[in-house]
Design a binder for these strands. Sequence first.
DNA 1: ATTTTTTTTTAATCTAGATTAAGAATTGAA
DNA 2: TTCAATTCTTAATCTAGATTAAAAAAAAAT
Lengths: 189, 189
Amino acid sequence: MVQNLIQHINGITPLTEEEEGIVAELVREKTLARKQFLHRAGEVAQYSAFVVEGCLRSYAVDRNGFEHILQFAPANWWISDMYSFVKNKPSELNVDALLETKVLLLSRSCQVSIFDRIPKLERYFRILTENALAASNHRTINYLSLPAKIRYEKFCTMYPTLINTIPQKSVASYIGITPEFLSKLRAEF
Amino acid sequence: MVQNLIQHINGITPLTEEEEGIVAELVREKTLARKQFLHRAGEVAQYSAFVVEGCLRSYAVDRNGFEHILQFAPANWWISDMYSFVKNKPSELNVDALLETKVLLLSRSCQVSIFDRIPKLERYFRILTENALAASNHRTINYLSLPAKIRYEKFCTMYPTLINTIPQKSVASYIGITPEFLSKLRAEF
DNA sequence: ATTTTTTTTTAATCTAGATTAAGAATTGAA
DNA sequence: TTCAATTCTTAATCTAGATTAAAAAAAAAT
């Protein structure tokens, strides 16, 4: 389990064996059943989760009860409610499991305290956050400038694995359309 | 000029006088005329810019020639094409000045090399990037779950200063509607 | 295996917001 | 100032995608 995370970190900022040991002590393993929540809207997000196996999602529920997915996290991705996690304030996102999922949990206080002991980890998270921001910007531009059909096609090429593992209505929620309309788009091949 | 940046950094990770001196040597001052480009789509973004005075914007141009604004940067904000700046690849964004604007430029190579000498600066940028990602996530959720009228109202309360300094069509572009439709929304008060 | 729940499809109708086109108002440049 | 360019408004028409409703299909749970 922890080995997956260490490999991921080593791919960005190689650690010494001692540092690897410290990382292993910082995180806590957890298995989430399908539909089990990691974080609920209104609470303060205590943890950021590294997905070892399975898939999580974060999403908001609007005033009409519709869900809007912000992020999918398949294996080797981090997920949290960044706003809540960083500001230590309650926020609007839920995080739950789309499938049975194994995660490693890192609390914000652990994370922040480790940055002084292992600056490499501050670098690791700095780089991950830069990448996430670049990806988020790209998504925003897509959303502003492309019609639904092309957003769907791009989703398929971007997340080929997810297409076959998560329900189609989740894809619709992520790309910002209704499941009925996605069904219609797919019917046109 | 540089003093504005140093104050901004000190608000997040206080620097020693020596460190302040190093920062001052790293950045380059520049004044951009209204409509002057800092970065053009298709080129690699060499610089991240800290706005001292005025306002920049980043935007993409779609296949029909329409502009879609990703970010405004008024005083005390950083702006760049994060994807291009970080990956050192050409990207799809333009950055130009909405008004005459004074900026401080920091090259990626300078930035990265300074992280080893002054880890506080890596922390500074890590925190800024976390905040930017949280804000970007919030915008995505708004875009997925709120109608145009409410997105406009939120924009007005979020950026009260901008409303009176930038053209209304730029607001429309940012919130993802046409200028004609924004005009119609405003007519309903 | 059977039942229940969830997901997907289809189709008719509706609407938020786009498009097109002109004129009016602002702004900026010379 | 005056002229040219840009921005804003109004109004008619159009459309991508939403809504509503039901039935069909698939997946979970028992």
